[in-house]
Design a protein around this nucleic acid. Structure first.
Length: 975
RNA sequence: GCUCUGGUGGUGGAAUGGUAGACACGAGGGACUUAAAAUCCCUUGCCCGCAAGGGCGUGUGGGUUCAAGUCCCACCCGGAGUACCA
């Protein structure tokens, strides 16, 4: 019987579904293991060949863990909210829910064909009210929480209300939008609206006027990770900075914990590094620089008198952040960002016009222009001066857009000798440059001769008052100590990570469970969740520029009756307007892994029992492109839920594997420039200038050889094509590009499953190369893998057909000659295979596993192996990779149960013993060889072992002359 | 610029510091067949040689080691992330 995958695969897929083979309970005596894939956004294009790569890898691991005796949670769902469905809706009027539903159905069909072991009973969809109920719920918890920097933990905001009434802000270090100081008396005097306004400053989900990334084309704001190079990631539209009132998540409060947590997880170094860079922790000092005021006699001398951190400050001053406090003696000017609040008050009348012009110019520049012109130096002098608190020198204050409002305090001390940007600025405007760090002690040169600044944090301080002669690191500490002692600054840490903007002016997303009394937002009661997404007539913004939810007629909150009512009933006494923005894409994906643990729970996000059993995700597989988005947000979300006492592990994803992106492999034909109907085979082209490369559909190319007939039919203009052949064929060129329709290089898995079967597709995707490596999709080798499966199938033919008796337990009862008992060689092949496959899977090296199966199959075929003892374990070994063929063979070997209830075979180390003598070489007339030792032992024991080893006997005569010994292995024996 | 990756045949890629190029594709040759498909066998890093055999080979140059694709230093080239982040 032939290997008939078209019959086998659907049959077993049905069996698995009907028998609920992959249904997983939250209760088990077995140890637990959680394997998670990043769930897909169900786009209209369906799955392409890159999607399943990670899913297949995780499925292999999940199935393997199951065979190793684990209770394996392996769920799948859909990240169903998103922009494409909404844009499609705007164009066609088709409701996004409908398109989403259709796309999900198609995804499911495609996924099922590949034979995954997902527990579909646990499916979640982010657009399902039963799911987003808990997204909204978490938002309310964030709204009702603040972050205590001292405890490094989120806490209920109600606690803060009590404390403010008793002692004001005194003695508290809270994560906030802006520093506030007030007393209990003040708090108690304020009215409700004012208090709410103050609390908003501390909530973890807060509403604030903030500069946002506004994308006019998309009609919405975007988070920082959704903008690259001043353009939106989706669509590539220009993005501008705009001040808008928006919901944000105070993710910056968790910056330190997000950095620290990376130490505890088993991720690739590169991904950890991406996150560290994104969070951007830098240590340094905050220093107050007093303004120089000639009218104020107190200013000089004696800067100690200012003590500017006390309020009211005796002298106006402003705060800067620096990572190089040691260079404070080299400050020759100060720079404020154009948005700095101090600019207006310090600019002198003579400079006013210039400064105003500059500030206006800078503000009107788009983010994209600004980034494109980074190299251009611009700025203007304010006419004002500051005082260097350590040298008491007067230093000019400039305004320039190379200082960013969003980082640090938006003001810097410029040290042109030791900062490249300050250096460029100083050179451009002819400002002085003073060297304060030198590679060698007491050696200086004239900065006027420098072509670049000396930025490295190495060497010694020079020209630097009391730190002169110290090493840079010592000088840093000494300067900070000094300014702390003077009370004009302190050691501090700055993060690049900004709060996540959480509002989107879109329809297809989770509605905020928020209504407004006047300007004050209130959450709707938790018992009333979910707040369901209302229907709208149109998906565009309204005529007045409101988000699409502005079209909803039934979108107001009746506070007394606790329900959504029609908007016309708004009276601002009992019925209030609801929030019109929706949540961003990352809202729904931030906690879905927890919901899988207990997906049908109506009364809680997930039960303590469920999370207590599963803990966190043991293995997460997905693309590295989520490094600065989803993977940061999800970690934040989890840490917050951890603070609430809900999540039991602080880090959600213990081990993370990034599957590499699958690129497209495009094919080209080359049209002669001289003759528009002539196509020249690749090898015959003399010069690329003579031909035009044209993308050709990869489906009419086989191993880079063009199918001439199909090419002529492909497009009318090629109907009369003529060719210059090489060796009777037309050979196409190829290139690695993005997979895209316009390049005719998209491969969808269905075609391949139909042609070769799911098992072949699974094996081939793994065989392509390391899971973690980016690689072009290339079907050229798929035949080889398919051929292997046929050989594998054939290996079982004799056993399955009954030609060999398959039950060795009856050995005693029947003549031995009927039973092909395993030979030593066969067993050796088997045990080597078990060891290799087990190691490979643990290392996530699935490409080598496939090779191992091929080698094993070839060897056993050569040995004419018909022994059940050898072949049966092989079925179990291959089951994670090719589950359908494994089930079928398992069944034909006479088992009633599924192969996934079998146990993973163990190898016998005795079977793997090799000749231990290796690498014998002649060396200066002496013999040298190496011996492998089985375990750690002393040199003496090792020598005894060597003398007894039969393999060594022929080399070793008498005592060895010299032995180089390394534990576990004798490196060298000279005799 | 900074950070992270990677550089091995015609191609995808193997190699706990231990015989580099496993396995597969492609290519060439052969068997079976009336023929084709399918299947099977042989050859296939480069150079010299009829052969036996020899020489050279993991981006470049050094180093450590009995032994380096692998470890260390410097450089060159690709890919990714990030970027006036003070």
């Amino acid at each position: 019987m032939d290997y008939n995958f078209t019959e086998i695969e659907p049959r077993w897929q049905n069996y698995w579904r009907e028998h609920g083979v992959y249904h997983i309970d939250n209760r088990s005596d077995r140890p637990h293991y959680y394997v998670l894939d990043m769930f897909p956004y169900p786009s209209g294009a369906g799955l392409h060949v890159g999607h399943p790569l990670g899913y297949i890898a995780s499925d292999i691991y999940a199935r393997y863990k199951r065979l190793r005796g684990f209770n394996v949670l392996h769920p799948m769902g859909y990240d169903a909210y998103g922009l494409p469905a909404e844009q499609y809706a705007i164009q066609t009027g088709q409701h996004p829910a409908v398109t989403t539903e259709q796309n999900i159905a198609r995804y499911r069909e495609q996924l099922d064909k590949i034979g995954f072991s997902f527990d579909w009973d646990r499916e979640v969809r982010t657009c399902d009210p039963r799911y987003y109920k808990w997204t909204q719920w978490t938002f309310i918890q964030l709204f009702n929480s603040y972050y205590c920097n001292q405890a490094q933990q989120a806490r209920p905001i109600s606690e803060l209300v009590e404390v403010f009434a008793k002692q004001g802000t005194d003695g508290f270090d809270l994560a906030c939008t802006e520093e506030m100081h007030f007393s209990a008396e003040e708090w108690n005097q304020w009215d409700e609206a004012r208090r709410q306004q103050v609390l908003m400053n501390y909530r973890l989900a807060y509403l604030a006027d903030i500069p946002v990334n506004w994308c006019a084309e998309l009609g919405t704001v975007l988070a920082n990770d959704e903008v690259v190079g001043g353009l939106s990631v989706r669509g590539g539209y220009p993005v501008e900075r705009k001040l808008m009132r928006q919901w944000s998540l105070r993710i910056s409060a968790y910056a330190q914990r997000l950095v620290d947590g990376l130490e505890q997880v088993d991720w690739t170094d590169s991904l950890k590094e991406i996150q560290r860079n994104w969070i951007g922790r830098s240590e340094g000092a905050a220093v107050w620089f007093p303004l120089y005021e000639p009218s104020n006699a107190n200013v000089l001398p004696g800067v100690q008198a200012y003590m500017p951190q006390f309020d009211p400050q005796p002298v106006p001053s402003f705060e800067i952040f620096t990572t190089r406090p040691d260079t404070i003696f080299g400050v020759t000017f100060m720079v404020l960002c154009p948005e700095h609040e101090l600019i207006d008050s310090i600019t002198t009348p003579e400079q006013r016009q210039q400064v105003q012009d500059y500030v206006n110019w800078a503000k009107n520049r788009s983010e994209r222009e600004r980034q494109a012109e980074v190299k251009k130096v611009s700025g203007v002098f304010t006419g004002a001066y500051a005082v260097n608190p350590l040298t008491e020198e007067r230093i000019p204050i400039w305004v320039s857009d190379y200082v960013l409002a969003g980082y640090g305090t938006g003001a810097i001390m410029a040290v042109p000798a030791h900062d490249s940007r300050d250096f460029a600025f100083a050179r451009h405007f002819g400002l002085p440059i003073r060297q304060v760090v030198s590679l060698e002690k007491d050696v200086t040169s004239d900065p006027a001769t420098w072509t670049e600044s000396m930025d490295a944090k190495t060497g010694y301080s020079v020209n630097s008052g009391f730190v002169t002669g110290m090493k840079v690191k010592e000088a840093m500490a000494a300067v900070i100590d000094k300014i702390e002692q003077m009370g004009i600054g302190h050691r501090t840490v700055n993060f690049r990570l900004r709060d996540a903007i959480f509002s989107r002016q879109r329809y297809w997303g989770e509605p905020f469970p928020i209504y407004y009394k006047g300007n004050t937002p209130y959450p709707i009661p938790e018992e009333c969740l979910p707040l369901e997404l209302p229907d709208v007539k149109e998906f565009k913004p309204t005529a007045t520029g409101e988000p699409p939810l502005g079209h909803a007629e039934c979108w107001a909150w009746d506070e007394q009756n606790r329900r959504v009512v029609e908007k016309r009933l708004i009276d601002n006494k009992t019925v209030f307007p609801l929030e019109l923005s929706t949540m961003p894409g990352f809202a729904g994906s931030s906690g879905y892994y927890l919901r899988y643990m207990d997906p049908h729970n109506d009364s809680a996000y997930f039960s303590p029992e469920a999370v207590g059993y599963w803990q966190n995700v043991d293995l997460y597989v997905g693309g590295a492109e989520h490094g600065t988005g989803h993977l940061i947000y999800a970690r934040f979300w989890n840490k917050f839920l951890f603070d609430l006492g809900m999540a039991v592990k602080e880090e959600p994803f213990q081990r993370l594997i990034n599957q590499g992106m699958i690129q497209g492999r495009s094919n080209f034909v080359y049209r002669s420039k001289a003759d528009n109907n002539l196509f020249i085979s690749k090898g015959l082209i003399k010069s690329m200038d003579d031909v035009t490369p044209i993308h050709v559909d990869i489906n009419i190319v086989d191993n880079d050889v063009l199918d001439i007939d199909r090419f002529r039919q492909w497009r009318p203009e090629f109907a009369d094509a003529r060719f210059e052949f090489e060796d009777g064929k037309y050979v196409c060129g190829w290139e690695v590009e993005k997979m895209s329709k316009s390049m005719y290089n998209v491969q969808n898995p269905d075609d391949l499953v139909a042609r070769y079967g799911a098992d072949t597709l699974r094996l081939y995707e793994m065989f392509l190369g390391p899971v973690e490596q980016a690689k072009p999709w290339d079907t050229n080798g798929i035949e080889g893998v398919h051929r292997f499966l046929k050989k594998f199938w054939k290996l079982f033919e004799r056993v399955c057909s009954g030609e060999c008796v398959v039950d060795s337990s009856r050995e005693q009862a029947l003549p031995t000659t009927h039973y092909p008992l395993p030979t030593k060689e066969e067993l050796k092949v088997l045990h080597q295979t078990i060891k290799k496959i087990t190691d490979d899977i643990e290392r996530f090296s699935f490409n080598t596993s496939v090779s191992t199966f091929m080698i094993c199959t070839n060897q056993l075929t050569d040995l004419k192996c018909g022994s059940r003892e050898v072949l049966e374990p092989l079925v179990v070994l291959i089951a994670p990779f090719a589950p359908h063929i494994a089930e079928e063979l398992w069944h034909q070997l006479g088992h009633d149960t599924t192969v996934f209830d079998a146990a993973w075979p163990q190898y016998d180390p005795q079977m793997l013993v090799e000749d231990t003598v290796k690498y014998p070489v002649q060396f200066n007339g002496k013999m040298r060889f190496t011996i492998d030792l089985p375990a750690a032992c002393t040199q003496q024991e090792a020598l005894e072992a060597v003398k007894e080893a039969p393999e060594a006997a022929k080399w070793l005569t008498g005592e060895p002359k010299k032995v180089i010994f390394v534990p576990k292995k004798i490196i060298n024996i000279v005799c």
